[in-house]
Computed example of a mutant assay.
Amino acid sequence: MLERFLTGDLSAVEEAVRKAAEAEILPRFRQLADHEVVQKNGPHDLVTVADRLAEEHLTASLTALLPGSLVVGEEAVHADPSVLDALRGDAPVWIVDPVDGTRQFVHGDTGFATLVALAHRGEVLASWTYAPALDQLAVARRGAGAVLDGVPLTAGSPEPGQVLEVAISHYDFTTEAQKRALSGLETEGVAPRPCGSAGLEYLAVARGQLAGTAFSWENPWDHAAGLLLVAEAGGASATVAGEPFRIAGGNALPFTAARDAATAAHILGLLAQAG
């Protein structure tokens, strides 16, 4: 059933993603009441009523599209960490971040996204990156390329001598060892900056607008969709140990996704040398 689903028309998934945003996210954009925003693990880790309701909406619609599938969503895992175990099982899994960039969403910034990926036995097979406030939708299917609003995406390569802009983890969310590794990017020819929505940073890499990323956390809902998007646009990714990123966890951190293999290797070399 999964193979038949993946080789068929996936427009129903796109519609589900758009409908969830239309019903639960956009009506609350710049309209949130104070009681509709709470902290999870600190002042920079927020959740809103839109996050919760959009995830519930997507959970119902996506599992209906693919009977027997499960959902690993950010809010469900926050409530019950054992939900993550589905990533190691045999059932197809939808990986969902209902509002990636909640801080931006809360502050009325358009830089947030809804991320959905479909995975099976640890492999991401398709992904959807939707920026509701911008009405931009990027779709990737393993082995079939990536598109943004129907136009093929190509990450390309940085121009020789170009300063490499790299989106990195906020230091608030890093260990001392990770801070040391990330400090390796503070060198000539590299311009590190704190990341916004992880999903939109991956999209920027896939579009050739950003040289790469260097992230020190491994929540699958933040990375699954974007890593496939970058790969299908011709980019490359790996952990600081030189291994592929595993969505089920246990990765050596930090890791990178970049426009091409040479850029990824350069970023990883700087991280490893500093770490």
Rank of each mutant, 00 (worst) to 15 (best):
E3P: 10
R4C: 12
F5P: 09
L6S: 10
T7S: 15
G8P: 05
D9R: 14
S11T: 15
V13M: 14
A16H: 08
A16P: 10
R18L: 08
A20C: 13
A20M: 05
E22P: 03
E22F: 01
A23N: 14
L26M: 03
E36C: 05
V37W: 09
V38A: 07
V38G: 04
V38L: 07
P43R: 12
H44K: 14
D45L: 07
D51K: 04
R52G: 09
A54V: 05
A54I: 06
S61D: 15
A64V: 08
L65M: 15
P67M: 08
L70C: 12
E74L: 12
V77F: 05
A79S: 13
V83K: 14
D85I: 02
A91D: 15
A91I: 12
A91F: 07
P92D: 14
D100Q: 06
Q104R: 05
V106F: 03
H107P: 02
G108F: 03
D109R: 12
T110F: 08
T110H: 10
G111C: 01
F112R: 03
F112W: 00
A113N: 00
L115G: 01
A117W: 04
G122T: 04
E123Y: 07
A126T: 13
P132A: 00
A133N: 02
L134D: 11
L137Y: 03
A138T: 05
A140F: 06
V147Q: 15
G150W: 15
V151W: 12
V151T: 15
L153S: 04
S157P: 01
P160G: 00
Q162D: 06
V163P: 10
E165Y: 10
V166A: 01
V166E: 01
S169G: 03
T174M: 13
T175I: 09
A177D: 10
Q178K: 09
K179T: 13
R180D: 11
E186R: 15
E188G: 11
A191N: 15
P192M: 04
C195Y: 13
S197Y: 00
G199I: 02
L203C: 01
V205W: 00
A214G: 00
W217H: 14
E218Y: 11
P220S: 03
L227T: 08
P244R: 10
G249N: 12
L253Q: 13
F255K: 09
A257R: 04
R259M: 00
A262F: 09
T263V: 03
H266I: 11
I267R: 08
